[in-house]
């Protein structure tokens, strides 16, 4: 069930689009619903979004599998999205990713045992002049070094 709170949030987005164009809000609706369900989308939540927006289930499924920001398997409370594209790569991102993996004892795509952190390698996040960088949930962290990463990660609770 989509909570009242989530519905209110979705309604804010629906209001931005012309009448009968509520499906424009589907990307945000999925994010909102995902956030309420341990950051995971399931077939049933997708169906609920479809029903709420009066869309065919498969049309929502198409969106939910096309964009990268949706999760289908367990992720950590903190998702570290490490950019490995060119500018970050040139600035040593690959080594830093290895360091992070070793530090957390997980590979990219995995979640720490305590469920706190998961690491994901992602494509360019549009902060190339701050390379190397990663994003933790909504926030960007730039000009990363091993020390900086250690400090940031150690503060995650």
């Amino acid at each position: 069930m989509i909570s009242i709170r989530a519905k209110n949030q979705i309604d804010v987005w629906i209001a931005k689009y012309p009448k009968d164009r509520q499906s424009s809000a589907v990307m945000q609706a999925l994010k909102i619903v995902q956030a309420e369900n341990e950051n995971i989308l399931s077939a049933s939540t997708i169906q609920e979004v479809a029903d709420y927006l009066d869309m065919p289930g498969i049309a929502v499924q198409e969106v939910a599998t096309f964009y990268e920001n949706y999760n289908y398997k367990k992720v950590g409370k903190y998702v570290i999205r490490f950019c490995h594209n060119i500018s970050c790569m040139l600035n040593g991102a690959d080594d830093l990713i290895k360091h992070l993996e070793n530090k957390l004892g997980v590979k990219t795509g995995e979640v720490t045992l305590d469920g706190l952190i998961s690491v994901k390698k992602v494509e360019c996040l549009g902060a190339c002049v701050g390379a190397p960088m990663f994003q933790i949930n909504e926030k960007y962290f730039e000009n990363l070094t091993i020390d900086k990463i250690d400090k940031i990660v150690d503060n995650l609770k």
Binding site: K16, A25, V26, M27, V63, F66, Y67, E68, N69
Partner: peptide
């Protein structure tokens, strides 16, 4: 004026993919 927020797809930078995306479809 409204903002529309993406969900992670480089291709939406292509202007017609971007329009599809605002319409709630795959980009």
């Amino acid at each position: 004026l409204y903002t529309h927020l993406g969900a992670g797809a480089y291709i939406c930078g292509e202007e017609t993919a971007l329009l599809e995306s605002i319409e709630g479809k795959k980009g």
